[in-house]
Design a protein around this nucleic acid. Structure first.
Lengths: 143, 143
DNA sequence: TATTGTTATACTCTATAACTATA
DNA sequence: TATAGTTATAGAGTATAACAATA
């Protein structure tokens, strides 16, 4: 019967937190010239990606954030003219989040910059390994 | 030529940060009855695992923390009689970190508790997938 | 001069509870 | 009564610079 490892360096939780921290720093410094950080970028992405329109609540759930955190992140993006809050149509309690034209432009640029940082960061892995990693992480995220 | 994905949900960085956050919360709540959190546990692990003795600097490097953070984490563990700081033998600037008998006992218990939490958290994956994930993360951590 | 542990400080991120307006 | 957004606040985590002791 295989057992979970007792060595810290073999613990998936420890490894995840180390690497997640590294990649976060890497992402933030890549985004800095654009005046964005990782969390702001993820909010902007939800607002800019075609398809769904998110209420703030749905957006928080999607990003794994507390709704109260989303408020501050949105306030900043709104102040900078990158996204808009629109009153919900069926439910007037809700506000729906959409990117402005300027927000979509900045988002495209940010996607480019982040993708480049990822390629660099993940360059020690083969394409197959990256795909397998992405698939595994996606399954964990869907729990 | 394969390109990095532009969808947020396919970004390895985003997935890592979501899952790392989830697993951190899970770990912290599993360790709570023992009066530990993830970071304190990782410091205790370094002190308790046989083999090397770490200076505070080496320990910080191993854990990916700033040396100044290690001071506070150690202060707490020392206050609770779980680890000791011993003056370095060759270099009197350094202090080496070792677990007390009580610290080693608590560490064994914590390892058990964390391993159980991990098995539960990772139960959606096959053993082969967990092994592959661990191997991939290890390679990224060794960059 | 350079490095180790330490202190101080500020900033980011996360968690919680309470308020308001709608449902 | 329950839920959406908001506000306020505290706590955890991270980053940086400076200092004393030692190399």
């Amino acid at each position: 019967m295989p057992d979970a490892p007792t060595e810290l360096s073999d613990d998936v939780g420890f490894l995840l937190s180390r690497i997640s921290g590294d990649i976060l720093r890497d992402t933030n410094s890549a985004l800095q010239p654009l005046g964005l950080r990782a969390r702001g970028f993820s909010v902007l992405s939800c607002a800019a990606e075609a398809g769904e329109e998110y209420t703030q609540r749905a957006l928080a759930a999607r990003l794994g954030l507390d709704p109260s955190q989303v408020v501050a992140l949105l306030d900043d993006l709104v102040d900078r003219g990158l996204v808009e809050r629109r009153p919900g149509e069926q439910d007037r309690r809700t506000r729906t989040v959409v990117a402005t034209a300027q927000g979509r432009r900045l988002h495209r640029e940010a996607v480019r910059v982040v993708a480049q940082a990822r390629r660099r960061y993940l360059s020690v892995l083969s394409e197959a390994e990256v795909a397998a990693l992405r698939a595994t992480l996606t399954r964990l995220a869907e729990r």
